[in-house]
Design a protein around this nucleic acid. Structure first.
Lengths: 221, 221
DNA sequence: TACATTTTTTATTATATATAAAATTTGTCT
DNA sequence: AGACAAATTTTATATATAATAAAAAATGTA
């Protein structure tokens, strides 16, 4: 009876190399998806760009849908970091800081974020408003973390329901992000569009002093 | 030499019947697109539902892309009507009237509007902000027609740039519409979401009296 | 009922995703 | 260096969809 060997001798090295190859091809995939859109990009095109055959793509990534799932999972993970940013009470500072942070994050890996958001649109993860740990509810909570100190410090008056205000702050991001993801505006335009919308939302309940500053800030964008 | 007859004897009747058949199948297409999404709906599925073969679909409608183009053309035409609605100076009345009008229009032919907006997303017509007769610029103009009388009547103060205000009023619609078109919210939720967002936009520049009324109205939604 | 024409269908092509099985490559150990 | 076992890639193939050409059927009128 022959001795049974569960793993090949050089399996550790093999896995490491595989990971490198996979990563190289995954980056090409991100580039192609960002360039053409998720549905429009094809496995065979990816294979050709990567210099391999289509079954190799399937071997490394599974179905096309699996690529979307992987992008989304990576995106969710990456967004968890932003989720834990420290609240700033002044609405103008808060909005500026928040938008700038996100932009610089996107700028770093634009292909990844654009392709991942496209994939997310296909799965609908961001649209789920029901489940407790939904991205929607998490985002609303973050917006709330911005509104509460602003109320406490008197930048906001409390005449507009907090819930409505936070909801608006969240919605601001969505439409701008959409426009950027699908290639209608660039990141700089995204910055201005979202900042403008966030400031407008804050302005609805701003103290006279704060309202004046927001108005000035809006003129400078 | 045989006499050349350009048209068949019964061509008028034929064309009329063809139009009826075509319309029947087009309605099924709208239903299917609204139900499954434009990319997900297939020609063969449509053919089966309609009780004809796939080439018949192609014969009647051309390519799949042509179906999208036709939906978009019909949508643009239908929206031209809404474009010419009379401005109301009071922001609350104006927003309520506008949202209600649109909803009732959509409610009538929900399959059509949902499938047409999906098709429009694919073509990107609504994202074009450059050309003079772009839908974007037309929409901005309508929003302006709402803002100007509100300023004149003193409902708005003019502290916030008119351009910014109109832009916000337009953006309000987009995200809510998106959520409805892709099946995440129904028309009643769309109503509340868009009305809330429009009122919030007006509130940023509202006179104290108007701001109070908006605040009350928001509580009642 | 004959017919000219339109309309539909059968047959076929092209392209994309996906998988199974064969062929090749890889990394290690002797 | 060369043998080897497993991993990896490729060739070949299946399935699904969109699209078109040519043949067959249906239609409306005289």
């Amino acid at each position: 009876m022959k001795p049974v060997r569960v793993k090949a001798h050089g399996n550790v090295t093999r896995q490491a190399n595989k990971k490198l190859r996979r990563e190289r091809i995954f980056n090409i995939a991100k580039k192609l998806i960002a360039l053409k859109g998720f549905d429009e990009f094809t496995i065979s095109e990816l294979a050709e760009e990567a210099g391999v055959s289509t079954p190799t793509i399937h071997n490394l990534f599974g179905k096309k849908e699996d690529i979307a799932d992987e992008l989304v999972a990576e995106l969710i993970l990456s967004l968890q970091k932003v989720m834990s940013f420290k609240p700033i009470s002044d609405p103008i500072e808060s909005a500026s800081y928040y938008v700038t942070s996100i932009i610089s994050m996107y700028k770093d890996k634009e292909n990844f974020y654009r392709s991942a958001y496209m994939a997310a649109d296909k799965t609908g993860v961001f649209e789920d408003r029901e489940s407790v740990d939904s991205f929607y509810k998490q985002s609303i909570k973050i917006a709330e973390h911005c509104v509460i100190p602003a109320l406490e410090q008197g930048f906001l008056l409390g005449n507009i329901d907090k819930k409505i205000l936070t909801r608006q702050l969240y919605q601001c991001h969505r439409i701008g992000r959409q426009d950027w993801v699908y290639g209608y505006i660039n990141l700089d335009q995204y910055h201005d569009q979202v900042l403008e919308a966030m400031l407008m939302a804050y302005a609805t309940d701003a103290s006279p002093e704060c309202h004046q500053r927001i108005s000035d800030k809006l003129k400078s964008i």
